[in-house]
C-alpha cells in the first residue's frame, strides 16, 4: 500500500476509536468504604439536613407548575437549550427508588447516570464531586425515605450539537476533575466547615462563577460574579474587586442567609431568594456562621 493509503487507514481507525470511546459507557469506579451504606440507622435524618444544605429541591421541583417537591419537572433555560430537572423522589420507576448506593454516588460524584451515560453539568455534580461519599449516601437515604412520587421525566430540548450526549465525555475530559475537598489543617474547623458548605454542598460557585463558551465554570474567576445567571439575573461577586462582602460584617452575612435582609434594607430576590427560602435559612446558626466566616476570609484586602 502507498503511504497515502496507510494514512487514510490510520485516520479511519483513529476516528472509529474516538467514536467508540464517545459511544461506549465507561462507568467510573465508585469507592464506598466497607460497612458504609445508605441503610444505616440515622442516615435519612442526616440526609434531610444535607438535602437542605445542598439545595436539591430548588431545581428538582416544578413549583410554578404545582408539581411535588423532588419530583422534578422544572425547566431550566440555558444558552444550550432547555433542560428539564428529573424526578429524584423514591419512586422505583420514574425516580431513584431502584438505584443502588453505587449508582447514586456515581451520579452525584462522578456525573454518570444509571446506564453509565454522562450527565449534563446543568446538574452540579461538577461541585457535588467534592462531597464526601458518606454525605452522598445520607442524601440518598433521605430521598428514598420520602413518599415516592410517580412523575414522568420529560426529555431535554437542546440544540445541536449539545443534544448529542456522547460529546459530554470530551467535555468532562477537558473541564471536570473529581476531587474531594481537602481539609486545611492550618485553618479552624469552622473555616473548613464553611468551605465545605460553600464549595461542595451549597454549590454557590455554580451561579456566582462566570462561565466559558462551553458552559464550564471559569475557575480563575471563582465566585467573582456571573453576568448571565439563571433566568437572566446578574449574579453578584462574592470574591474579588467587585465583591461587596468586604463591607459586610459576619453578622450581616448570617442575617442575609437567614432572612434575605441586606444591610441596606434591600432584600434578596430572584434565584437567591429561592436559595434562602429552600436552603440557607434552614441551616444551623453554626453553619451560617461558618459560611459567613469563610466568605469573609476570601475578602481580606
Amino acid at each position: 500500500m502507498s503511504p497515502l493509503r496507510w494514512l487514510l487507514v490510520l485516520v479511519l481507525l483513529g476516528g472509529a476509536g474516538i467514536l467508540a470511546w464517545l459511544m461506549l459507557p465507561l462507568r467510573a469506579a465508585v469507592d464506598i468504604p466497607p460497612g458504609m451504606s445508605s441503610e444505616e440507622p440515622g442516615m435519612a435524618e442526616r440526609g434531610a439536613y444535607l438535602v437542605r444544605a445542598a439545595g436539591c429541591v430548588s431545581c428538582h421541583w416544578d413549583r410554578k407548575g404545582r408539581g411535588k417537591p423532588f419530583a422534578g419537572g422544572r425547566q431550566l433555560i440555558t444558552p444550550f437549550g432547555v433542560f428539564v430537572a428529573p424526578n429524584i423522589s423514591g419512586d422505583t420507576r420514574s425516580g431513584i427508588g431502584a438505584w443502588s448506593d453505587e449508582e447514586f454516588v456515581r451520579a452525584l460524584i462522578h456525573g454518570q447516570g444509571v446506564h453509565g451515560e454522562e450527565l449534563y453539568p446543568v446538574f452540579p455534580y461538577t461541585t457535588y464531586t467534592r462531597m464526601t461519599v458518606e454525605d452522598a449516601l445520607a442524601i440518598k437515604a433521605y430521598l428514598v425515605s420520602l413518599a415516592p412520587v410517580p412523575a414522568g421525566n420529560e426529555g431535554h430540548d437542546l440544540s445541536f450539537p449539545f443534544s448529542w450526549r456522547a460529546l459530554l465525555k470530551g467535555w468532562k475530559l477537558l473541564y471536570f476533575s473529581g476531587e474531594p475537598l481537602p481539609y486545611d489543617p492550618n485553618r479552624s474547623s469552622t473555616w473548613n466547615r464553611g468551605r465545605y458548605l460553600v464549595d461542595a454542598l451549597g454549590h454557590c460557585g455554580e451561579c456566582h462563577t462566570p462561565r466559558g463558551d462551553f458552559g464550564q465554570m471559569d475557575e480563575k474567576r471563582y465566585l467573582q460574579g456571573n453576568p448571565h445567571g439563571p433566568d437572566g439575573w446578574k449574579i453578584p461577586a462574592l470574591v474579588g474587586p467587585r465583591s461587596q462582602l468586604a463591607e459586610w460584617s459576619v453578622e450581616e452575612i448570617e442575617e442575609y442567609l437567614n432572612s434575605g435582609a441586606k444591610p441596606d434594607f434591600d432584600s434578596a430576590q430572584g434565584p437567591m431568594a429561592e436559595v434562602i427560602e429552600d436552603s440557607s435559612k434552614h441551616l444551623t446558626e453554626e453553619d451560617q456562621n461558618a459560611i459567613a466566616l469563610y466568605l469573609k476570609s476570601l475578602n481580606r484586602r
Binding site: D231, G232, W233, K234, S259, G260, A261, F265, D266, S267, Q269, G270, A273
Partner: peptide, 16 residues
Amino acid sequence: RKSCGGCHTPFRGPEI
C-alpha cells in the same frame, strides 16, 4: 424591611 421587599418582589425585575 418587609415593606421594601413588599414592593421589590412584585414590581422589580431581574438585575441584568
